[in-house]
Amino acid sequence: MVQQETTFEDHLSLTFAALADPTRRKILATLRYGDVTVKQLAEPFAMSLPAITKHLKVLEKAGLISRGKEAQWRPSRLEAGPLKEVADWIDGYRQIWEARLDRLDEYLRELQQQEKEKTQNQRKSDYEQGKN
């Protein structure tokens, strides 16, 4: 069990490291729409094909993309599995954040209710003093 967690953590580390770079995130965004060649991926960037290839290797090592071989070009394809793993990992923390926000919301409602009661009591007191 410990070995599985270590492997999972290492895989998450690879995925997060790959996602840390804005160029790689833009590449992944492009691949959402289908397979794309290295040359097509390089077009929007002011960098060489070898530089794009290095980014693709990082994404491939993290399992975020796969690269095929079709004739003379190597299309890249988005692999969503690692992104699902990241989303699932983050979801555990989302539940914690939601629970904390729910407690904060409850506390704020209590404060608002106390303030409302305080205002009503002050008005009642002012009214009774004015009557006497």
Rank of each mutant, 00 (worst) to 15 (best):
H11S: 14
F16L: 11
K61M: 06
T30P: 10
Y33M: 15
T15G: 01
G81V: 10
P44K: 02
K39N: 07
V36M: 11
T119C: 08
Q72F: 05
K124M: 15
G130A: 02
R25T: 07
V38S: 02
N132F: 11
E128L: 06
L12V: 01
S66E: 07
I96A: 06
L41V: 09
Q112T: 08
K131P: 05
A87I: 09
L28P: 07
F8P: 05
E60R: 03
Y107P: 01
D21L: 03
G68Q: 11
P22W: 00
P75H: 04
Q72W: 07
W73D: 15
S125G: 10
I27C: 00
Y127L: 14
G34E: 02
R77S: 06
Q72V: 04
K26S: 12
H55P: 13
M1F: 06
E117R: 12
Q114P: 00
A62K: 00
E110N: 09
I90V: 10
Q40L: 13
G63D: 04
E128V: 04
Q40H: 07
R24A: 02
Q40I: 01
Q95A: 15
N132E: 14
R123P: 01
F45V: 03
N132W: 08
Q112P: 07
T23P: 09
S76Q: 06
S66D: 12
E79V: 11
L108R: 04
D91E: 09
L78V: 01
T15N: 00
E85R: 10
K84I: 14
Q4L: 15
E85F: 01
F8R: 14
K57V: 08
Q4Y: 07
T53Q: 12
F16Q: 03
R67E: 15
D21H: 13
E43I: 05
G81D: 14
E115N: 14
H11I: 01
E43Q: 04
L56Y: 00
V36T: 09
A46R: 15
G68A: 15
K69G: 07
L78F: 02
K26P: 12
E5M: 08
A87T: 02
A71F: 01
L12M: 03
E115Y: 13
L59I: 05
D21F: 06
S125V: 09
I65Y: 01
L14V: 08
T30Y: 10
K39F: 08
K84W: 12
D35N: 06
A51Q: 11
P75A: 11
L19F: 01
Q40E: 12
K26Y: 02
E98Y: 09
F8S: 11
G81F: 06
Y127P: 05
E9C: 08
L101D: 07
G81N: 08
A87D: 14
E106D: 15
T119D: 14
E60I: 00
F45C: 03
L12P: 05
Q120C: 04
T6M: 12
T30G: 12
N121W: 13
V36I: 05
E60K: 04
K26E: 12
